[in-house]
């Protein structure tokens, strides 16, 4: 089943999505890219109803590009997320709404901050340190939460252990990718219908790029 994750770290956002294109019980394809590069510093992972996802993602992609052409500067991640949210919220109360869930990861060149937005098909948007969609979210979110719990209860007992393993907003890219691997491994271990391949993209001050896990 479809799964996507994203997490922020020191100066970057990692966005990962599985690459399966399935229809009913049949896997049609296992190398589909479900992360769109909306600009030089903006990524969008999309999942949901097969037809809707591509249609909506392309609609967003072209409109964000149009804004950049017209104004000669790109939308900032927060503005892009607001616009995308509004598109979904308006679609929700139309005759046939888009059933698309999104993760928007961007690097804001104005205030030099990585930002991540969790958006669902209803048009609910929220800025978060880490996020997930699909069945994988039930496993990944609780795993990433352990860092937050460790923080609220004072210093973690095995500091370095937790620092390497769980989500840390100050983590380096290597540590962030290690955390992502943990999420993927947890999903593979516990979810019956787990995807086996993921595409991983990173956005930081230098722009977007794909990374191999």
């Amino acid at each position: 089943m479809e799964t996507s994750f994203a997490l922020t770290g020191k100066g970057y956002v990692i966005v990962a999505a599985d690459t399966t294109a399935a229809r009913s019980i049949v896997k049609m394809k296992d190398d589909q890219d479900k992360i769109k590069e909306l600009g030089s510093h903006l990524l969008m992972a999309y999942s949901g109803e097969p037809g809707d996802t591509i249609q909506f993602a392309e609609y967003v992609e072209r409109n964000i590009r149009l804004y950049q052409i017209r104004n000669l500067y790109p939308l900032r991640p927060s503005a892009a997320a607001s616009w995308i949210r509004r598109s979904l919220a308006e679609s929700l109360r139309s005759r046939n709404a888009y059933t698309v869930n999104l993760l928007i990861g961007g690097y804001d060149l104005a205030d030099h901050k990585p930002t991540l937005y969790w958006i669902d098909y209803l048009g609910t948007v929220v800025e978060v340190p880490f996020a997930a969609h699909g069945y994988g979210s039930y496993f990944a979110l609780s795993l990433l939460d352990r860092w937050a719990i460790a923080l609220t209860r004072g210093r973690p007992r095995r500091h370095t252990d937790i620092l390497l393993r769980y989500h840390n907003p100050e983590a380096t890219l290597e540590e962030g990718l290690a955390t992502l691997k943990r999420c993927i491994n947890e999903v593979s271990k516990r979810l019956i219908v787990s995807p086996d391949r993921y595409k991983v993209k990173v956005v930081d001050k230098d722009g977007v790029r794909e990374v191999e896990l």
Binding site: S78, T124, V125, V126, V128, S137, L141
Partner: peptide
């Protein structure tokens, strides 16, 4: 979303009367 918690950190600070930051939600 239902029983699954998504977010718990909302410290939205209003800037001024007219130019408020657009909040996310809870």
């Amino acid at each position: 979303t239902q029983a699954l918690g998504i977010s718990s950190n909302f410290q939205r600070v209003p800037v001024s009367h007219f130019s408020r930051v657009c909040p996310s939600l809870t």
